[in-house]
Each structure stands twice: as C-alpha cells, then as structure tokens.
Simulated scan of single mutants.
Amino acid sequence: MELIWTGLLEALRMIISADSEVFQITWLTVQVCIFSTFISTVLGVPIGMLLAFKHFAGKKIILLVSHAGMGLPPVVAGLWVTMFLWRSGPFGEWQWLFTVNAIVIAQIIVSLPILISLSYSAFKKIDDGTRLQIKALAPTKPQSLLLYLKQAQFGLCAAIMAGLGRVLAEVGAAMMVGGNLQGQTRILTTAMVMEVSRGNFHIALALSFILMAIAFMLTFILLRFQQKDVTT
C-alpha cells in the first residue's frame, strides 16, 4: 500500500513540476494512440459495414481473420512489422523501424480487427424493418450512409473505445518496433517496463497513474459523445 501511495505522490509531483521528459512521453503516447485509433476507425468501420450489408467471395474468410485478429498477441504484430521494415525487408528502404511510424503501424494492426469485428456486429444489429424504412425514403448514397451510421452509432462508439483501449495498453509491439528510444519512440507503456526493469517501481506506478488518467479522460469524452447522440 505504501508503494502505491508513493507512486501516486510521484505522479502528482511529475505533473505539478511539469517534468519535461514525462510531458514528452505522455504527449507522444496521446498522439500515437489517437492517430492509430483514427486510422483503424477510418478503415475498420467501412469494412465492417461492407461485411454486414454485402455478399461477396471471401467474405467468410475476412470475417474469420478479423474475429481471430481480435486476440492477436501484440508481439506477433511487432515481429511481422519488424520483418517487413527491417533493412532487408520489403519496406526496409522506408527506414521506419525504430520510429513513431512503426509504432503506429503495429498499433493499427492490433486494433483494426477489433474495429472491423465490432463495427460488423453493430451494423448487423440493425433490424430488417429499419433497413426497409431507410430504403423507402429513397435517400442518396451519402444520405443512406449517414442513416446507417446513425442507427449503429452506439455500437460504433463501443468499437472505437475498445480499439482505443487496445492501443493504450499495448507494449510488446511498441517495444519491439520502436526500440523505446528516449525522446523519439518512448511512450508510457514502454517507459513503465523500463523503470520496472531498473527497479524503480514508484516511477513505474507514477507513469501507470498518468496512463490510467489519460484512458479515463479519452473514454469519458467518447462516452459523452455516445450518450449525447443517443439522447438526441
């Protein structure tokens, strides 16, 4: 209990003193997580809608891969990204390994299956009666898209929250492809692992409190958006 209290006090000290390194790590964490979740959402929601409303060859395989991918170990994603971005890999010329770009790619890989699967479920829950009503209105394609998004908004918000939670908690892939370089690729989760390995448990706990605070704030914003849409 004393260690937890010490960690909490250390977190408050870091915030109040505006520790530059902690601020840099925290800001990079927020940027990477929001950007990777945004990309996963932009890709995952349309794919989920397509899987829910269209029939085409290979649909079952895509569904199987997306559902199985929800449990993909981050270190596996990190390993594949590392192989592809390694100097001798297909994309080695990009020189993205041990950069923020590599972390974003790894986080997209681990969160995209979640966005696809949960978006698919959200759109599948729209009953046939609602679909017929939408068709009876004879809307344009953009209008139809907005109507379907409105009907599935509750499930879509849950999908985004789940994807965000996955990338916030991710550490294995980020450590593997980012290298945990100070001032470049170090984020809160990798910094926590490093401090634990050094025996600085109070600092690791302090960083964990900061990470949990970020998770609570981002989730609160999404929940407020979700509840606002439901009540209107």
Rank of each mutant, 00 (worst) to 15 (best):
M1T: 13
W5E: 14
W5N: 15
G7V: 03
E10A: 12
I15Y: 10
I15G: 10
A18W: 14
D19H: 09
E21H: 06
F23Y: 10
Q24L: 15
Q24G: 13
Q24E: 15
I25N: 01
W27A: 13
L28W: 03
L28F: 06
T29W: 09
V30M: 07
Q31D: 02
V32F: 01
I34L: 15
I34Q: 14
S36F: 08
T37P: 10
T37G: 10
F38C: 12
F38T: 14
S40T: 02
T41H: 06
V42R: 07
V42I: 14
G44C: 08
P46V: 07
P46T: 10
I47Q: 00
M49W: 09
L50G: 12
L51I: 03
A52Y: 11
K54E: 12
H55D: 13
K59E: 03
L63S: 12
V65W: 06
S66I: 02
H67P: 03
M70N: 04
M70W: 06
M70T: 04
P73W: 04
V75G: 00
V76M: 11
V76P: 01
G78V: 00
G78W: 00
L79D: 01
V81P: 02
G92C: 01
W94F: 14
L97W: 04
Q107G: 03
S111E: 03
P113L: 07
I114Y: 08
I114L: 13
S119D: 04
Y120L: 07
D128F: 12
L132A: 15
I134E: 07
K135M: 13
P142I: 08
L146P: 01
Q151K: 15
Q151I: 07
F154W: 12
C157R: 01
A158P: 09
I160P: 02
I160F: 10
M161T: 10
A162R: 05
G165V: 04
V167Q: 01
L168D: 11
A169L: 04
E170P: 02
A173N: 01
A174H: 09
M175K: 11
M176I: 12
V177A: 08
V177I: 05
G183Q: 04
G183E: 09
T189Y: 00
T190M: 04
A191M: 04
V193F: 09
V193T: 10
V196S: 05
S197V: 02
F201G: 09
F201W: 11
F201Q: 13
H202S: 15
L207W: 00
L207A: 02
I210T: 10
L211F: 01
F216Q: 08
T219R: 09
T219Y: 11
F220T: 15
L223P: 06
Q226F: 07
D229V: 08
V230R: 14
V230E: 14
V230W: 11
V230I: 10
